[in-house]
């Protein structure tokens, strides 16, 4: 069992389910953190219509995160049904609001700052492309709950992919200024794409070898970049660690925003 997982408070979960819980949390954290990032645009979008579009995507992602957290909580509680152990019974809320930075397993790409609209669009495009092929693959997973969530979410993700591709093309092949901003976004984000295709220990255990998604992902990114007059960078050093809890400095700030209320007023409800 990998260290970041066995160190946390759910140590009663046996290894075989432990890896599964870790993987489900990874899927949930990806969606939650990217959803939270996109939600930062709420009220700040460049135009009203796009403000609504990006926050719609946020809500889609947070909806996916909820489904995965609920499932993870259910598996955790099966093994330690009695409340107690410091945090009580696991729930979607406790998993989102009461885990620390090192316990989050989202990929680094999801937590990168919004930057300008170009950077947010590119982040969404790079991630949605990955998510699209991943969910398509997970639809046939032997775990029918994971498969079900993937199948349901695929429609949303297909739209995110379509919408963000169009923005990447529109800005990449737009004005001199928009092209320049898109180039800066590629510079900013590219080194966080490598991690997506390096399986974490829990992915390996579950035979979810994300490396094989890379060809489809690269093909789609190439097609869109071609149309957007952008070049796919080569020989870039790739960052990794998010999937196993080693994050960039940004995640702490996101969590302090996201978790503030529950930390300051435990159990607060409305």
């Amino acid at each position: 069992m990998e260290t970041t997982y066995s160190n946390n408070k759910f140590s009663k979960v046996p290894p075989q389910d432990g890896f599964r819980v870790a993987y489900i949390l990874h899927l949930a954290d990806n969606s939650l953190i990217l959803g939270q990032r996109n939600a930062e645009w709420c009220g700040h979008g460049p135009v009203l219509e796009q403000d609504i579009a990006i926050t719609n995507i946020s809500l889609d992602l947070i909806g996916q995160a909820r489904s995965f957290y609920q499932y993870a909580a259910q598996l955790i509680n099966q093994h330690s049904p009695s409340p107690g152990g410091g945090r009580g019974e696991a729930s979607e809320d406790s998993l989102a609001y009461l885990r620390t930075e090192r316990e989050f397993k989202n990929c680094l790409l999801a937590e990168q700052p919004n930057g300008d609209w170009a950077q947010t669009m590119l982040r969404q495009f790079l991630y949605s492309t990955y998510q699209y092929y991943l969910y398509r693959f997970l639809q046939t997973n032997s775990d029918t709950t994971i498969a079900g969530i993937a199948e349901k979410s695929l429609k949303e993700v297909s739209y995110h992919l379509r919408w963000s591709s169009e923005w990447v093309i529109r800005l990449g092949d737009g004005t001199e200024e928009s092209h320049k901003r898109m180039l800066r976004a590629v510079d900013e984000l590219w080194s966080y794409t490598g991690e997506l295709f390096i399986p974490a220990p829990y992915e390996k255990e579950l035979s979810i070898d994300t490396a094989f998604l890379k060809d489809d992902w690269a093909k789609k990114v190439n097609t869109v970049f071609d149309e957007a007059a952008l070049t796919v960078p080569s020989n870039v050093f790739m960052q990794e660690g998010g999937k196993t809890g080693t994050h960039t400095e940004h995640l702490g700030y996101i969590l302090s925003d996201l978790q503030y209320l529950q930390r300051a007023y435990p159990g607060c409800d409305w």
Binding site: P46, V47, E166, R170, L171
Partner: peptide
């Protein structure tokens, strides 16, 4: 079309 976005870049120009 998407290849010729408005020069101003603000929604008001769309």
């Amino acid at each position: 079309d998407s290849k010729n976005p408005p020069s101003g870049g603000r929604g008001a120009d769309w």
